[in-house]
């Protein structure tokens, strides 16, 4: 759920005041004509707003090459594939794996990869790629820099931007952004040691394409429901009082809370979870609270999974209740978000 608009305005003002992005005391809707982008050290607000909505507000179809070079334990694993990404500009999107370039798999396993990739398309579209989810919060946490370099990617004239976290160690994003549409045409995710962990780049792009009536748009399948405002309705819907993380004052801002359900580990039914979605403006993390956990010991313990590339996952039991947090943030930050639910 969104915060009150007064608070948002205050945060917005503070954010832009901090980064000195010019006259950005109020967040305006993206204009239809692109503003002139000159080298000023920082991207214009109009471009940032355009980038925020472009993935779903622009009608386009294109082929992208995705490369990942992720460390798991002491080993670095590389994956590379091509995919087709489409949007009708009205909120419908589609992501389809076209070709697995590396690693080389036997034909049947590659078929299986295509099937599984199809089931992941909605999540990957929303959370894998670089995306500005909240401009004000992004300006609080990141230093966006326009390098002044212009480049062409898939025939589109692009502005090079760099996004680095203001405080703490995290990734740096090197972007090439289409000046006209605001689409991120190329994105490199660079680790603190300079290692390029991921790269997503358009090889071709068509704006305003004609889509067939039976085009396979992504359909959400996790059946999330909004968490009711009323405490009694929340308890009635979940069976327990949900604990939500406090994002105030920290890197992450609570965006919405929903109810999701997962199968019981023993397959005997479903566990309802209160799912909180938070963002620092770019990265998104999820904190889930699953109520009483009678199947485990009552000891307060959280288990931190080994990082898989930039992603982390923690889960465990606190005060006899299930908790889980996951996202492209450090395990310590995920643990802090869970701890904040108990304050």
């Amino acid at each position: 759920m969104r915060r009150p608009s007064l608070l948002l305005t205050a945060v917005t003002g503070l954010a832009f005041g901090l980064v000195g992005c010019g006259d950005m005391s109020s967040v305006s809707a993206p204009s239809t004509t692109p503003p002139p982008i000159l080298y000023s050290g920082q991207p214009s607000e109009a471009l940032l707003q355009k980038m925020r909505v472009a993935p779903t507000a622009v009608a386009y179809s294109g082929v992208r090459r995705v490369e990942q070079s992720w460390q798991v334990g002491v080993t670095v694993y590389s994956t590379s594939y091509r995919e087709e990404v489409s949007s009708d500009g009205q909120g419908r999107v589609a992501l389809q794996g076209l070709e697995l370039i590396a690693p080389t798999l036997p034909p049947r396993r590659e078929e299986l990869w295509h099937m599984l990739q199809e089931s992941r398309d909605g999540f990957l579209f929303r959370y894998r790629d670089f995306r500005i989810h909240d401009v004000a919060q992004m300006c609080v946490n990141y230093s966006p820099i326009a390098t002044g370099v212009r480049t062409r990617v898939a025939g589109r004239e692009c502005e090079e931007l760099v996004f680095a976290l203001r405080h703490g160690a995290a990734f740096t994003y090197n972007l090439a952004v289409d000046r006209e549409s605001g689409l991120v045409m190329r994105c490199e995710q660079v680790a603190t040691d300079g290692h390029v962990m991921g790269k997503v780049e358009f090889e071709s792009l068509e704006l305003n394409p004609q889509f067939a009536p039976d085009f396979p748009w992504d359909e959400s399948s996790n059946q999330e429901q909004p968490l009711p405002e009323s405490r009694s309705l929340r308890v009635a819907a979940l069976g327990f009082r949900p604990r939500l993380p406090e994002g105030d004052g920290g890197r992450f801002l609570l965006v919405e809370s929903t109810i999701v359900r997962s199968p019981e580990p023993d397959g005997g039914g479903e566990i309802p979870w209160a799912k909180s979605t938070l963002t620092d403006g770019i990265e998104v993390v999820f904190v889930l609270h699953g109520g009483d956990d009678s199947s485990l010991l009552s000891e307060d313990v959280m288990r931190v999974a080994p990082s898989v590339g930039p992603w982390n996952h923690v889960e465990g039991t606190l005060a006899g209740e299930r908790f889980m947090a996951l996202g492209r943030a450090s395990a310590d930050e995920l643990l802090d978000l869970i701890a904040s639910t108990l304050k």
Binding site: L116, M302, A305, P306, L335
Partner: peptide, 28 residues
């Protein structure tokens, strides 16, 4: 609370493994 750090992806819970498989496009 106590924090346990798992050393291997073999020790991942089913939910953690499913999550990593999704975000990594099946890397594991």
């Amino acid at each position: 609370f106590r924090v346990e750090r798992l050393e291997s992806t073999r020790d991942l819970s089913p939910s953690a493994r499913a999550w990593f498989e999704t975000v990594s496009s099946g890397l594991l």
